[in-house]
Each structure stands twice: as C-alpha cells, then as structure tokens.
C-alpha cells in the first residue's frame, strides 16, 4: 500500500518535471511593454526616455510599444518560425509601426483566422459587405520569418498601439 502511494507520488513528480522541461522551449520569447515619455534632462532640455509601461502612468490616448524579444538555443535550425501577437484588448494598432528584421509582417482582422499584409486585410461589415480593414480593425499581428533561425540567433519584433 505504502509502496503504491510512493510510486504514484514519483509519477506525479516526474510528470511535473517533464512539463517544466517541455515548457522550456529552445525558442525563448520575452514580451516587453514600454512607453516613451518626455522628461527634462539635467540641462533642462526635453529628452525622450523609454520606460516600462507597467511602471509608467498609461492613460487613454497613450502609445505603448509592444516588443517581443526572441532567442534560439536549439541544436537544429528552427524553420517556419512565426511570432504572433494578438492585439491586446483596449488597444488600437498604430498603422505602419510593426517592424521585425527578416520577417514578413501580416495582419488579421478576424481573430487570427486569416492574415494579409497591411492594407490588404479584408473585413466584412454587419451586412456582410467586404471592405479593407483599417488599423483599428486588426485583431492580430504576426511576423513570418523568411529564413531559418540558427542556434544563438537573437532579435526582436515590435509594434505600437494606442490605448482607446
């Protein structure tokens, strides 16, 4: 009886450890949300500083810079790499601000079901009539990497959006 209990416990520990190991992907993503604030420097001249959005006082109308930093540590090259960032609730994408070296940037206005380059995303209105989606309609942004990521590859993709 005691042995059986210990065995189950061991299994549980194993499962738990295994889960952590699986989560530790060789492609690591770090999300950073920042805002640019203007402060006066020691010479009294306005200077733009980029600070952590969580510590800044973000209010409606403010622009937040959403950055995803990636680093790849896998043995084999990573191919078909796609980083996706759903547009956070209460935010409106600022047109033309998404960037990412070596990627093709696409947008979705239907919660990620379909993607197209900026200006070519289609959306259907309440009457089913199709039109070109505006930046405010975007629900997701994705960066499709053109090439493979080798071991040790690092970089970042980012976009800006405004608090509604």
């Amino acid at each position: 009886m005691m042995k059986k209990a210990l065995f189950i416990l061991a299994m549980l520990i194993f499962t738990a450890t295994h889960a952590v190991a699986a989560d530790k992907s060789p492609l690591e993503l770090v999300s950073v949300n920042e805002v640019d604030i203007t402060v006066k420097n020691s010479k009294g001249v306005d200077e733009v500083q980029r600070v952590d959005a969580a510590k800044a006082k973000v209010v409606p109308g403010d622009t937040v810079i959403f950055t995803t930093r990636y680093s790849y540590a896998g043995g084999k090259p990573a191919t078909d790499v796609v980083i996706t960032n759903p547009m956070p609730e209460h935010m409106i994408y600022t047109d033309g601000t998404a960037e990412g070296k070596g990627t093709r940037i696409e947008f979705s206005a239907d919660k990620g079901a379909s993607y197209a380059p900026a200006g070519k995303v289609k959306i259907k209105d309440a009457k089913g009539k199709e039109r070109v989606a505006a930046a405010a309609d975007y629900t997701h942004i994705r960066w499709v990497f053109k090439g493979a990521l080798e071991k040790g590859a690092k970089g970042e993709v980012f976009f800006r959006a405004k608090v509604k």
Partner: peptide, 10 residues
C-alpha cells in the same frame, strides 16, 4: 491591458 506573444516553429 494584458499582452503576450506566441511563436510556432519546427
């Protein structure tokens, strides 16, 4: 305002 990104690759 909550934000997270995800990546897929092979």
């Amino acid at each position: 305002i909550s934000n997270a990104a995800k990546a897929t690759y092979t």
